[in-house]
């Protein structure tokens, strides 16, 4: 695919709830003697939060950083697998909450953990073709794991938003290229009336996560003329800490280039927000001129890979909002009982 021309990120925002539960606390209740925990801790959305409220918080940060009139936003795409409504758009709520206008394409997306990067692809396309001036791409989830399931250690809550528009001198980063790699691979799913997803354990690894991410990255290298040496940072989807490190290793990427964007150890897997929060973390400290390779993964399955280059405008703009690390570090731990209450896992009927 041809490279993207003239499209840039003007603002970005990462949001995570203030509450955390330690993996060992979940292990205290459920672990059957396995000392290896997939993450250290994960975020827990407060009882008054859902994917929509977190999408709004991330969007507000992105708009504030960009400093644009929100009425200039022509599209809002929200990717989530935990929409609070089965039927009712999220983008319209985000629009009303940030003060966007009514001449707006508002569409929600779902593709397991990669709906957020799909939103970014679509917004990029709309800006590139001149159809909209600015667009907002958001990934937001309050992921739920069945109590006692392996997923419960990692399924977390968070959101990331990117305000994208035409390239100008004040832009934060350019989106140089993107591609996707998808196949019909049923490694994880949730039927319409079920509360918790099903997954296929080790089948989610090699034929699913690894094959698709590597496929998307290779496609970028082969079709768009990049080499892995061109990149200062790599951000991969992080269902746990092990997978992104393993995919880096198999690609031959230095661990130092992946560490800055690794957030799963302290946030868990925030699903549609996951790789995007890694990107936010990298952008918070990256230098103008540096290049970032981002590759998401969504079960079902597919990976979206992006080439993002940091621009001069970032230095001034990212000072307008708090860094993601201030949200990551400002936390209140809850025990398993409070976690059950917050996430409405206690049956009230």
């Amino acid at each position: 695919m041809a490279r993207v021309t003239g499209v840039a990120i003007h603002g970005y925002g990462g949001y995570v709830p203030r509450y955390r539960i330690r993996a060992e606390e979940i292990g205290r209740i459920w672990n059957r003697g396995d000392p290896e925990l997939p993450v250290n801790e994960k975020t827990v959305a407060a009882p008054d939060e859902d994917a929509t409220t977190m999408a709004v918080e991330a969007a507000r940060i992105a708009v504030k950083m960009a400093g644009i009139d929100p009425r200039k936003i022509g599209a809002i795409h929200v990717g989530s697998e935990s929409k609070p409504y089965a039927v009712k758009p999220t983008g319209t709520v985000v629009s009303a909450a940030i003060g966007a206008g009514t001449s707006l394409l508002a569409a929600d997306l779902e593709f397991a953990c990669k709906a957020g990067t799909e939103a970014l692809q679509l917004i990029t396309g709309l800006v590139e073709t001149g159809r909209i001036e600015y667009g907002l791409a958001i990934g937001a989830d309050t992921a739920q794991g069945r109590p006692g399931d392996a997923l419960e250690f990692t399924a977390a809550s968070g959101a990331a938003a990117f305000l994208v528009g035409s390239m100008d001198n004040a832009a934060v980063a350019s989106i140089e290229a993107w591609c996707s790699y998808v196949t019909d691979t049923p490694d994880f799913w949730r039927r319409p009336n079920d509360r918790y997803p099903m997954h296929t354990a080790r089948f989610t690894g090699q034929p699913a996560y690894f094959r698709h991410i590597i496929g998307a990255v290779k496609s970028l290298m082969d079709n768009d003329g990049y080499s892995l040496n061109d990149f200062d940072y790599f951000v991969f989807h992080q269902p746990n800490v092990k997978f992104p490190l393993a995919v880096a290793k198999s690609l031959g990427v230095d661990e130092k280039k992946i560490a800055p964007g690794l957030v799963a150890d302290v946030l868990g897997n925030t699903y549609s927000a996951c790789s995007l929060l890694g990107l936010v973390k990298v952008l918070d400290s990256a230098l103008p001129g540096q290049a970032i390779l981002l590759a998401s993964y969504g079960s079902g399955a597919g990976s979206d890979a992006f080439v993002i280059r940091v621009l001069e405008g970032i230095s001034e703009k990212r000072e307008r909002v708090p860094k993601l690390s201030s949200l990551i570090n400002d936390k209140i731990y809850v025990d398993y009982a409070v976690y059950l209450k917050f996430r409405e896992k206690i049956s009230m009927r």
């Binding site: 407060a46 009882p47 859902d50 929509t52 409220t53 409504y85 709520v93 909450a97 949200l327």
Partner: peptide
């Protein structure tokens, strides 16, 4: 911040609105 204020049972509407939290 933007939060759920009230939820009308299992089937009704979710009502959103402002709350305040310690400034980050």
């Amino acid at each position: 911040v933007f939060r759920k204020i009230r939820v009308d049972g299992e089937q009704g509407i979710i009502e959103y609105g402002y709350k305040f939290r310690p400034l980050i």
